[in-house]
Design a protein around this nucleic acid. Structure first.
Lengths: 189, 189
DNA sequence: GGGTGTTGTCAACGCTGTTGACGTCCGGAC
DNA sequence: GTCCGGACGTCAACAGCGTTGACAACACCC
């Protein structure tokens, strides 16, 4: 019998772990944290639900390890300051926007969890505040950098969570032209 | 015997319904949608969990009926346009901020539910976009009004969800002075 | 060949939202 | 007075959830 149970090839753990991670990424992005059940993730990965917990410890940790904000805006931020607002908006809307949006949606909705919340805070600080605030001149540079991050949050909310029709259907140029100067004011101080 | 079961005074339904509503408001604000269980709400109201469903139909509808965004910014928006940005920020931060913040937090986190999501969209439209967009001159008035709403979302995110320390600890005057002009740019077009 | 550790399965726990059957009381009809 | 209908509330149970512990199957080391 090839058997109904498929047991234990040592070293295969990493593979199934990765397979679980892929399914988790997909389902978390599509259905959100609460909507993606451990059982559904396990089923899509062809695996027992208990194995998911065995590999990742908990659903919360699975979420944290698979759904990560990875956006890199260093290039944008290290560019010329006087056009930063527009370039930031453009970069948000064009650079891997699906991942950015679905990740933002999933993480923000899951901020019930303190771990998710602090992870999101850390990501925002690493992506925007830390690289930006030392570049700002004038008063309250860090506070202004944090308000830039807030403005970015707002745009992400509108597109990824509220799915504001007019904003979603607007061209990138329009949004750069309109929302860019709004952020630019925070940069200029 | 005063009895262990307290049965059926006709007309008392409205009272217990209201009592359930109060407990729900409290627990949803404190623990969020997922964190506040129907059983906990029922227990705090001194009531059987099934009765909660009987009165409100479902947890989702209970949430929608109890946690509502009620902010009124008509006065602010109908005031002079050239100072709208600052006045809007000030109003957001001073007018019943706890309710605004905890409601924003609870609703945004619960946008997994399409009903909650569309309710939040409707609230944003009623509070900001509908009163503001007819007052804007220049190109794309409605799109700009929606971007104002996005900027507001960003500020609410920073304060209510991410709890950005520097923003929370900043004075209202500081935030009016810094974030106000950023919104003002969208108003001026 | 007999441990040892990795990989995986299975049944179960306590929790969740929700439902249907069942009481229990009040107000009105006859 | 008595019976009925409906409002009000309780109770036990359902399926699904995240998670756990006991157990099986295999590869490897000695």
């Amino acid at each position: 019998m090839t058997s109904s149970t498929a047991p234990a090839q040592p070293g295969s753990g990493a593979l199934t772990r990765e397979s679980i991670g892929r399914s988790a990424r997909r389902l978390f992005a599509r259905r959100g944290y609460a909507g993606a059940s451990v059982r559904a993730i396990a089923s899509e990965a062809g695996v027992d639900p208990a194995l998911v917990i065995r590999h990742f410890g908990s659903k919360e940790r699975l979420f944290l390890e698979t759904v990560a904000i990875e956006g890199r805006f260093d290039d944008v931020i290290s560019g010329p300051l006087d056009t930063l607002g527009g370039r930031l908006v453009e970069s948000l809307l064009t650079e891997a926007p699906e991942i950015t949006f679905s990740t933002w949606r999933a993480m923000l909705r899951a901020t019930d969890s303190d771990l998710v919340r602090s992870r999101l805070i850390a990501a925002m600080e690493e992506m925007f505040i830390r690289p930006l605030s030392p570049r700002l001149s004038g008063p309250d540079p860090e506070l202004r950098a944090r308000l830039v991050a807030a403005a970015v949050s707002g745009l992400l909310d509108a597109v990824a969570i509220l799915s504001d029709d007019l904003i979603v259907q607007a061209t990138v140029e329009q949004l750069v032209r309109l929302y860019g100067p709004s952020i630019q004011v925070l940069v200029d101080g």
